[in-house]
Design a protein around this nucleic acid. Structure first.
Lengths: 239, 239
DNA sequence: GAGTGGTCTAGACCACTTC
DNA sequence: AAGTGGTCTAGACCACTCT
């Protein structure tokens, strides 16, 4: 059997092979995969083994399955999916979808910190994007996003950036963000940002530093956000 | 077969039955469960069905399994486990274990908000515990913990509270905290707390409001923490 | 009705732990 | 060697979707 050369369990080898097909773009978001039986036949393993690999990929949100229909590559085009990583809520818990305004977009060389965190070559250019996000017409977040041009060629040539950048990454660059690491601090709002959020200088704001990680484990985007927490909170459940 | 009267899948019925045994204390933390084969025989289902239920409980961190040894009720007595929900880190990511000093412990009637969040009767008494937590001998957190006496009888009679309260809840009251909901804000530190954290008045601090939830879904503890984020960050990964 | 994923079973063999 | 969980297979039947 073609997979038997490995040291890992069969279902793990199947998992790796199927995951590679997603990373390579062999299967694209929203696409229907072959049925369990067909995959089992193609790979020379039992249907139960394919099932175990597929179910693991569902747990990790790479795939979605529907009884009677089939198995699909996960897509994040629903509002609720797009804002899967957007954690600001009203204190009572309602989900809030922000509007977004781009303030600036500039190319520059990557800083040492960025080179390290994004694992870039020394001379790589990055785009620094500054946006203000508003909820109910009130500006509540100002964020700086760092995108390496080596990962997202000419991303600053796009007109009409989508509200959720991740959909652009997925549709235009075939890059799917699977997880983010957030570090939160409380700081006084930087002087230059105070006016954009309609806050007095010295106001305490949440500072959120985020690394965005792809399906294959690469950090491809950095962001730093300053969030007014007068009316909104960062809400998260730990298990 | 004794379980067949339900509408749910067999493995779900097995899951519910086994979970109930944990909630009831029929099986206690660190205890060895019967083997898959014995459970299957007792419940009149196949070994594969028991396995599916057990594995789900492992995912939810109620059980731990070890090949060759058996299946155990999860216990949280390791330092890393005790601080499973402790998210403060040095910016580079090292795990920090705080020391803890109790400032006060008082009984009082529950407030309306507490009655609602903890689902209490109107006349229930609660304990309000105020603690300072230090890292490397520097105070960084001051927290107020609300414990209903209806859930934790005479909890304020304990001398020597453990560093992690959850181990007390588990060992003395048979209550296991399975998840927490955190809401984070940035605020100016309350005047009365500034001196405890060695911070100037008006300093921005992280305010973390937490609901702690048991294995059976009840909120049994509230806490509000003010954290200096000069040298530490709240770190979390979203998937 | 045909095709999909979801459940359940039974049995074989492997890997690890303990005695 | 005996007992545990982990993997893999094969087959039956159920529930759902689409045509």
């Amino acid at each position: 059997m073609s997979l038997s050369a490995g040291f890992q369990p069969l279902y793990k080898q199947v998992y790796d092979l199927l995951t590679a097909r997603l990373v390579d773009g062999y299967w694209k978001p929203s696409q229907l995969l072959p049925s369990e039986m067909l995959l089992a036949e193609e790979l020379g393993v039992s249907q139960g083994t394919v099932r175990k690999a597929l179910n693991q990929m569902v747990v990790e949100k790479m795939l979605q399955r529907q009884q009677g229909k089939g198995t699909f590559v996960a897509e994040y085009t629903q509002e609720s999916d797009l804002f899967r990583f957007f954690r600001l809520r009203e204190p009572l818990g309602e989900i809030l979808i922000p509007e977004t305004l781009v303030l600036s977009s500039t190319r520059r060389g990557a800083s040492g910190d960025e080179i390290k965190k994004l694992n870039l070559d020394a001379d790589t250019l990055v785009v620094e994007l500054i946006r203000v996000r508003s909820i109910h017409n009130k500006p509540v977040i100002i964020e700086k996003v760092i995108q390496p041009l080596s990962v997202f060629p000419d991303i600053d040539k796009n007109t009409d950036l989508p509200n959720a950048l991740y959909i652009l990454y997925q549709e235009k660059y075939g890059i799917t963000i699977m997880s983010v690491n957030d570090q939160l601090r409380a700081v006084e709002i930087p002087k230059t940002y105070a006016k954009h959020l309609d806050l007095p200088e010295g106001s305490p704001v949440l500072m959120i530093e985020r690394n965005s990680v792809t399906i294959d484990g690469r950090v491809v985007e950095l962001s730093t956000a300053y969030c007014s927490s007068e009316n909104f909170v960062y809400s998260v459940t730990l298990t």
